[in-house]
């Protein structure tokens, strides 16, 4: 229930310009996420804090995780035990995961204290939490794939929680084949999909304005409004 109509975007395509399902889908997508929202050149003036850099830090860490994971995958699970280069790539995989979780958690803390789910951004918050939770499961399967003493013990100890929940047969921590599939295919796809959706939602809705921000704030007064006849309320 807003006081004022949202001004129409420039070049907003009319619904009846499209005749096919494809065209209508394209229209809907472009309306929700026009190019200047997807790849913006500016941000609202309130986006001025170091807390905003941690989301990007997490995404970039994920890039390093995937890159080192691809190299490990191409060489097979035993490679890192035998080769110095392999061991180094394994270290990169480990440390990019540590940095991924560190940046992601600081990002999560920041977004919580901003109550960043306001203004129709609930799904953004939910997908962010989804990315966090799926990443935890993915990391767990990675620890099981180390094929060393640590992974042996985690498999033995970890089975009890999964069995108590009734999923120990389908997520059998001692079945390397199963865990390998989870870790290198199913879960990375899930993490990638959830993170991609999360980022698109962030771009769609924009960065949440400050708590207690009001139309009377100076930053909103100096802005040039497209519907200038309404300006100066």
């Amino acid at each position: 229930m807003s006081l004022r109509e949202n001004p129409p975007r420039e070049h907003a395509p009319e619904e009846d310009e499209y005749h096919t399902w494809t065209g209508k889908a394209r229209g809907a997508l472009l309306r929700r996420l026009p190019a200047d929202k997807l790849l913006p050149e500016d941000q609202p003036s309130y986006v001025a804090s170091w807390i905003y850099v941690f989301g990007m830090g997490a995404i970039v860490s994920l890039v390093f995780i995937l890159a080192s994971g691809v190299i490990l995958g191409l060489n097979g699970p035993a490679w890192y035990h035998l080769s110095d280069l392999g061991h180094f790539v394994n270290s990169v995989h480990l440390w990019s995961v540590e940095l991924f979780f560190m940046t992601m958690v600081v990002h999560l803390w920041g977004k919580y204290w901003m109550a960043a789910w306001r203004g129709g951004r609930t799904l953004t918050w939910i997908t962010g939490m989804g990315a966090f939770l799926v990443s935890i499961v993915t990391a767990f399967t990675g620890y099981l794939l180390q094929t060393n003493f640590d992974s042996q013990w985690i498999a033995f100890e970890g089975k009890d929680a999964l069995n108590s929940a009734g999923i120990g047969a389908w997520f059998n921590v001692a079945n390397l084949g199963q865990i390998f599939m989870f870790h290198i295919i199913l879960l990375p796809l899930a993490v990638g999909a959830v993170v991609a959706l999360h980022v698109l939602l962030v771009r769609m809705h924009g960065v949440v304005p400050p708590l207690e921000a009001a139309e009377s704030d100076a930053q909103l007064q100096t802005g040039v409004r497209p519907d200038s006849e309404e300006a100066g309320r």
């Binding site: 609202p44 203004g119 949440v208 304005p209 704030d217 007064q221």
Partner: peptide, 11 residues
């Protein structure tokens, strides 16, 4: 305000 696209100052 949180629901609408930002129309104030930008950086």
């Amino acid at each position: 305000l949180a629901r609408r696209p930002w129309r104030g100052t930008v950086r």
